[in-house]
Amino acid sequence: MSHTAHIPSHRKPRRSASKVVLRSGVAGGVLSTIAVAGAAGPANAEPVTTQTIEMPTLTSGLVGDFTRSAEATQRVANSLDLRAQQDAAASSAAQTAKKAKAKAEADREAEAKKKAAEARAKAAAAAERASRTAERTTLSASSSSNSGSGSSSGSTASASNVSSQATGSAAAVLAFAQSQIGDAYIMGSTGPNAWDCSALVQAAYRQIGVDLPRVSQDQSTAGTQVSLSNLQPGDILYWGGAGSAYHTAIYAGGGEFIGAQNPSSGVVKKSMDWDPPSGAVRVL
């Protein structure tokens, strides 16, 4: 036996294996532990060394921060959505107001045009009345200067006209004119419930297929000139000069005529003595 056999070996025992264990936990402040253990041979073993490392813990405070952040984000989104809705509503209201303003302006313009047209019509009617008054004054003065023979011939004409009766086409013309008595006089109107003088004459003759000119000046030369002492029912009477007449009517017989006189009288049947005409033309 060797003399060193009883002496324990001084060599450090060899490690045969090593193992690393990692344990971790997150919740309620659980600590994570990393253990490293080394196992020696079957005869001898060294003590196990344990090292503990503290890991971060997800606490309720962090959860609250996440929750508050999410809520803040949602509030911002809600605020942006509300702002968008408000902007859309404001834009729609602005467009509606713009359309309403445009319509109001159009209505005002149309009303102004209507009033202007009415004013022009009234002015034209007033001018026509003034012209007729002046013409009648001239005619009256001229009649007063004539000799009594003129009056005698007028009386004879009236007497003969009283016994005359309209027939044929003249009767149709007068029947239409008679049916319009009481209608209004409006300058430029052509019926059916309002007329000016030449429009009534034109419409009456249209009943028998005769197409007369529209205005008094042209109607006063539309047929054959006849004397006021030789009138027949249906003849066209005119006031003013032939070709420059300012008023026309239809002779009804018996010294009377039917015509659209003026805004105050409308369509009437009157004696020629009430408003003596200047001349007459015969179309039939």
Rank of each mutant, 00 (worst) to 15 (best):
R11F: 11
R11S: 04
K12S: 14
K12T: 15
P13A: 15
P13N: 06
P13S: 11
S16A: 04
S16C: 09
A17V: 05
K19D: 03
V20P: 00
V20M: 06
V21G: 09
L22H: 03
L22F: 07
R23Q: 12
R23P: 02
S24E: 12
S24K: 13
G25R: 05
G28N: 12
V30T: 13
V30P: 05
L31Y: 08
S32T: 08
S32R: 08
S32K: 05
T33W: 04
A35L: 11
G38V: 15
A40I: 01
G41E: 00
G41H: 03
G41A: 00
P42W: 06
P42E: 14
N44V: 11
V48G: 10
T49D: 06
T50V: 15
T50H: 12
T50I: 08
Q51W: 14
T52D: 12
T52W: 04
I53R: 09
E54T: 12
E54A: 10
E54V: 05
M55A: 10
M55G: 13
T57D: 03
T57I: 06
L58S: 10
T59N: 14
G61E: 11
G61T: 08
G61L: 02
V63I: 14
G64P: 09
G64N: 11
D65I: 15
D65G: 15
D65K: 15
D65S: 15
R68M: 15
R68L: 06
A70P: 01
A70R: 01
E71I: 07
E71C: 03
E71Y: 05
A72Q: 14
T73W: 10
T73R: 09
R75N: 07
V76M: 04
A77G: 06
N78Y: 01
N78L: 00
S79N: 07
S79E: 05
L80Q: 02
L80N: 09
D81N: 04
D81W: 04
D81L: 02
L82N: 14
L82T: 10
R83D: 03
Q85E: 07
D87Y: 10
D87N: 11
A88L: 01
A88E: 07
A89P: 02
S91C: 05
S91Q: 09
S92T: 02
A94C: 07
A94G: 05
A94P: 08
Q95R: 07
Q95A: 05
T96R: 02
A97N: 06
K98S: 13
K98T: 02
K98P: 00
K99W: 06
